[in-house]
Design a protein around this nucleic acid. Structure first.
Lengths: 144, 144
DNA sequence: ACACTATTTATAAACATTACAAAGTAAGAA
DNA sequence: TTCTTACTTTGTAATGTTTATAAATAGTGT
């Protein structure tokens, strides 16, 4: 499953004329396997073992490249640093206000909203994002 | 109209025990009157005339205070800096991928999404955000 | 294996935002 | 009004993320 996704991603890179380097392979693999939404720095740190000489700039550069070919989405919350999410299927995120936990969840169509927005504003809509904020089950238990 | 909103905001500050300083007054006034969604730095620059000695830190401090009492929302897009939006009525934003223009638009209920998310994830939902991305009418005309 | 070009690395720089301590000031009490 | 106290502002330094740059390195097609 993860293997498959990685393979698809590499194919996407090939057909975009983006070279496949060991660093890129590792970053992608990490993004696919880790079910979380890591920051650039977290990716950097978790690959220190395999690539002791890798530069942070490499992580940033490649995340940008992945974004450009549509493999990765950048999530900018209130935090200081961006988080990166492998684009697989369409899904949204629900985020805990207390502990910051991010959970994926699926919801079918907000196409209607996009359509209305096009009509009202005259924009040509390409994309949308949505996040939901609340308190996760764990933080609900631990009474404050 | 704007006058009224400012008054309401000041009342909200009073009842929250937040002192009303000339700087706070000016920042709020600017946020309410400017129909845009300025960055902290833009606010700072636009008040240079009235408050030549005001520090950027003051702008940031007060935007945080306003956020805490619910007068202002912070918008974090892909940009380097946050934008700030006076909370008036519920509305969403549509953002131009090319020029960055932000236009408000209203849409009734995404309560359904919140409800579903609660059921699926077990979170207690408090809030959500959504943005739509596309190409504004002006940028559609100027062919690339 | 070669050559060409994209990529990596290391470092410095840019930028937004926050921390801190000293000086100043709003707001209620006397 | 004046006083007092705690909150704010200011100026500056520090922090942390992200980008720019140039030299060294390494994919990829021939």
């Amino acid at each position: 499953m993860a293997e498959e996704k990685l393979h698809e991603a590499i194919d996407a890179m090939k057909s975009s004329g983006v070279r496949i380097t060991p660093q890129r392979h590792a970053i992608l693999e990490h993004l696919i396997q880790s079910m979380s939404h890591p920051t650039a720095d977290e990716i950097y740190k978790s690959l220190e073992g395999k690539f002791p000489n890798m530069s942070v700039a490499t992580v940033y550069n490649n995340l940008r490249v992945f974004k450009e070919i549509g493999l990765v989405k950048e999530l900018t919350y209130g935090d200081s640093s961006s988080r990166f999410d492998c684009v697989t299927t369409d899904h949204y995120h629900i985020i805990c206000d207390d502990c910051g936990k991010i959970v994926d969840f699926h919801y079918p169509g907000l196409d209607e909203v996009e359509t209305l927005a096009e009509q009202v504003t005259g924009f040509r809509v390409g994309d949308h994002r949505m996040e939901i904020y609340g308190k996760c089950p764990d933080c609900q238990k631990s009474k404050h």
